[in-house]
Amino acid sequence: MAGLILGIETSCDETAAAVVAGGRRLLTNIISSQIELHQPFGGVVPELASRNHLENINLIIQEALAAAGVSWKDLDGIAVTYGPGLVGALLVGVTVAKAIAFARRLPLVGVNHLEGHIYANFLAHPHLEPPFVSLVVSGGHTDLLHVLGYGRYRILGRTRDDAAGEAFDKVARVLGLGYPGGPQIEAAAREGNPGAISFPRAVVKDAPFDFSFSGLKTAVLNYLNRSRQRGEIINAADVAASFQEAVVEVLVERTLAAAARCRVDRVAVCGGVAANSALRSLFQAQSAGTGIEVLYPPPVLCTDNGAMIASVGYYRLQAGHTAPLDLNAVPNLPLENWG
């Protein structure tokens, strides 16, 4: 079986569809970003996201099938993100996927978005097999997991407050760099000195692999207020570089410690922040000589996409996990073990 899966993703501000063969081979990956739509609001507006998803989703699906040269009858299943995410946004993908699956008599697979990010690495690295440690780092997540097998996970740590990508967005806003914050901070930081300001690296008591970024965000705010009160000129590039360094250092250090603890020699980083070049270079520097190989998907598979959902869908379908036609969106869907 070729295992052709159509993957549909609408959990936040990307309308995406993709066709993947055998869980690993990308045929098409169509992504329509809503960044411009939300930019005037400085963040994602859920109602607008839902409206835009509904306007575009069918054309994105059509484009994914056409570009792959695949028709409905070639497909073996439809996979769709049903959580976690914005409930109204998720519902668009879930609704359309269910209607198509029913009309074409195709098996429907509900997919966890977080799990999707991990599987982006299977698409990028055809020979990658579990076990490995995965860091999922994006605007919605900062999770450290031990991937034991397909559908078998142990959560090692997660953020206690803001996700790393969320911290990037908030700091970009106070620096007046605009939305989305990740690429803006990264660009500004290139011109700055990461050692200019010493921002805190939070440790969570009794949880060596957990993260906390709200204190760092407050420290940046305090620094800016103090400088303004003193009438000092703020060097936004230095603030961005020093903030980014503080985030990246904690992510790299805890991930490599987790890999050592789990005795794995591979780490798969994923999610929107995995595209950050400072994160990548620090991982490379810190892992050198440790025997740990750090893998990332290409940037197009770091952002939300349908291909990663199709990949999970393939493996879930192989394991016999299909969804009923009353499948609902679950905004706080936890990661479950099914393998």
Partner: peptide
């Protein structure tokens, strides 16, 4: 409205 129209669109597209 989105659930109704999303269902209609999915059916129309698939059929």
């Amino acid at each position: 409205l989105r659930i109704g129209l999303g269902t209609g669109k999915g059916l129309a597209q698939a059929l």
